[in-house]
Design a binder for these strands. Structure first.
Lengths: 159, 159
DNA sequence: ATTAAATGTGACAAAAACACTCCTATTTGG
DNA sequence: CCAAATAGGAGTGTTTTTGTCACATTTAAT
């Protein structure tokens, strides 16, 4: 009944990325270090976010990743389901043959309603809002890294 | 992000038990067969419900289990947390050192709110209601077994 | 062209969780 | 004492999780 580390890391990475201006490029190893994520593991997660159109990646020297979709259009649910697959509270909600028709029951209905509510809540805030709230509270926290980043931004911000 | 089979089986068993009058005794093997639960597995789950005061068990010949708490006082959340431990959507909600204070973040708050909502929903209906709804829809389903049960009930209903 | 620096990806592996099974108590009515 | 029921610890095979590693690919700069 828990998010896996894959989802957790994806959320951390997205919150980090979204706390900088759109267009800023990041190296995966930088994201990993700043957010306590195993570098090699993050390298398996980021490409999924790229394929989903959330991030864009650039290979080669001075490459990296940056936001493709605007943070106001990205929600936690979106990120979680991108990296972990569709969320399902109970196996019988996946649509398999786990639940026989005979056992379609009142508890099943409760699961459906609960799951629906969760999805609403996890898609009720955008990363723009989340990142804003976060940086308002901790604007001192990454402040010294902003300089590095703006320098890098000017180098890579070519489109 | 899913209920385990332990929780699923516990819910099935409770829904089954609560669809009969309070005081009715059931053998574990009977519950297992009627609800597609591996017998040996259910034997590891039932004792937890007994220790939590939800069920009562009777050893020895013509023993079994029956409701101890009234079904109107039992909720799905109660059953799930009894057999699976406290529900936590994210490791950082367990209270461990998973989440550093520095990373207390806006996503964390969203987790808290979502988890709270889930708990509200899963404790918003009692098994009395759930069993009633269920039997109204499928009162034909276990009807032929009611006879067996009432026979057994008269034998064991000694308190 | 070469090279260095970045991401992409498939294979592999250790560890943990899950979903049981098995065996041996222990209790209880007859 | 025996048969029938639950109690519970130990063990086991499978799957999932959480990575690691090696190698391939792409790209900018020299």
């Amino acid at each position: 009944m828990q998010l896996t580390m894959t989802g957790e890391y994806a959320l951390r990475a997205m919150l980090y990325i979204c706390s900088y201006p759109m267009g800023t490029f990041f190296q995966i190893s930088d994201i990993a270090i700043k957010n306590d994520i195993p570098d090699n593991f993050l390298r398996k997660i980021i490409p999924r976010l790229c394929k989903a159109g959330i991030l864009r990646s650039q290979r080669g020297t001075s490459g990296g990743v940056s936001l493709l979709k605007h943070s106001k259009e990205i929600t936690p649910l979106h990120v979680i389901e991108t990296v972990e697959g569709e969320m399902a509270l109970n196996k019988c909600l996946i649509g398999s043959d786990f639940c026989s028709k005979e056992r379609w029951c009142s508890v099943h209905i409760l699961w459906c309603e609960t799951q629906q509510k969760i999805k609403e809540m996890l898609s009720g805030k955008t990363f723009e809002e989340l990142a804003k709230t976060n940086s308002e509270r901790f604007l001192h926290f990454h402040s010294h890294k902003q300089n590095n980043k703006s320098q890098k931004k000017s180098k890579n911000n070519k489109e």
